[in-house]
Nucleic acid binder design. Sequence first.
DNA 1: TGTACATCAGTGAACGCGCGTTCACTGATGTAC
DNA 2: TGTACATCAGTGAACGCGCGTTCACTGATGTAC
Lengths: 212, 212
Amino acid sequence: VDVKEEIMADAPPREARTRNPRGYGDRLRDDAIAAAEDLLSEHPVEALSLRAVARAAGVSAPALYPHFAGRRALVWAVLEHRFDVLTAQTAQAAAQFTQPRERLRAWCLTYCHFGLAHPGHYRLLFESWSAECVDVPLTDLPGYELRSGLLALIAACASCADDVEELGTLIWAGLHGLVSLRINKPSFPWPPLETLLDALLTRMTPASPLTT
Amino acid sequence: VDVKEEIMADAPPREARTRNPRGYGDRLRDDAIAAAEDLLSEHPVEALSLRAVARAAGVSAPALYPHFAGRRALVWAVLEHRFDVLTAQTAQAAAQFTQPRERLRAWCLTYCHFGLAHPGHYRLLFESWSAECVDVPLTDLPGYELRSGLLALIAACASCADDVEELGTLIWAGLHGLVSLRINKPSFPWPPLETLLDALLTRMTPASPLTT
DNA sequence: TGTACATCAGTGAACGCGCGTTCACTGATGTAC
DNA sequence: TGTACATCAGTGAACGCGCGTTCACTGATGTAC
């Protein structure tokens, strides 16, 4: 609820950074994104200041401007990077199985684990105002590829009678609800995640029971 | 993603406020909460400053201190009030029916409508860091009464084989997912809410089909 | 091989801003005598 | 009935802070001649 709980300015002065060699200035861009992701583990995105990222990267604030047009652009770059990572992780998890139902389960489990392991990142990806996306075409939305991956796996599990868009929305909503509520209401007595996930998938696609 | 999009300081000077008569100073407390709820419709809670609330209430910032210990206390008061409103609205909606399944459906529909009608409030209630609740006993958590109301309705619909806690979590997660994703990813092509809600309830409690 | 110069990867100071919070105060209103 | 006084519901100025962003700069490094 409160932003200023822990001041982000309290970071250590950071060990002396050696400036990048000539021609490798772009490395700072990746360093800044990594530093921002570190900070996001502890603080909500609204508290992610450009100055704090610069501090964490061991650099002065104006040094970021050649790499990011401003604070918005920095946050956007972080968001895109985390979506790429999550998309890759879930796809890789699914790829380790061949049976459709196992593939779907692996995807969902990895999605949930990502959220619970990195609540700050999850909140950035799925719980931040996205008013800035209004005029982006659907396929360019951050998260579009992730959603497509899930829908494809669901389609492979669904019976003919199912509306895949509807079923996909329900399952995604279920996953998101499980992760988001757990993150945001940690004090409630939540049953184990895997139990809930299996119950969710069983009830959502009863045609193919969840067995190996 | 970005906080400072619209500066909250842009509010009009507000019409001249007549000071409360002697003995009615407490009215300012309610006025401040109402003003804060207004502002939350447009801005995330992190951007809700005590000064902005004071401006919106037509009062100087220090005038709020006799009523709230500080910014945190003000936000907390708003949160409790909105939980009270949502709890009352959902309970009232359920009370208009007698059949358990209809009562559950009315409750869920009202929950979702609340979230979609007041995304800023919904985000405050269900998507804000709640680290400050860690040492509060379960039954004192804001939202505990709300959750109990839902669980009671679900228990009335569940078959003997169901684990009500588990089923309640799945349904709450489903509702929260539907609302939260829609709020946070408004550009995606979401099917109509009622369709999804009915599909969710049908799949979650298949024993009692959804009819009048 | 030596040197002038362009470029690169940054720095440090400064700007104006809104913030939370404190302090001493003010002016209207009710009450005691 | 008149007046001194306490109380109430606030105000206005001030503090120090971190913020996003700009500007002119610096010092190392590679390159042209």
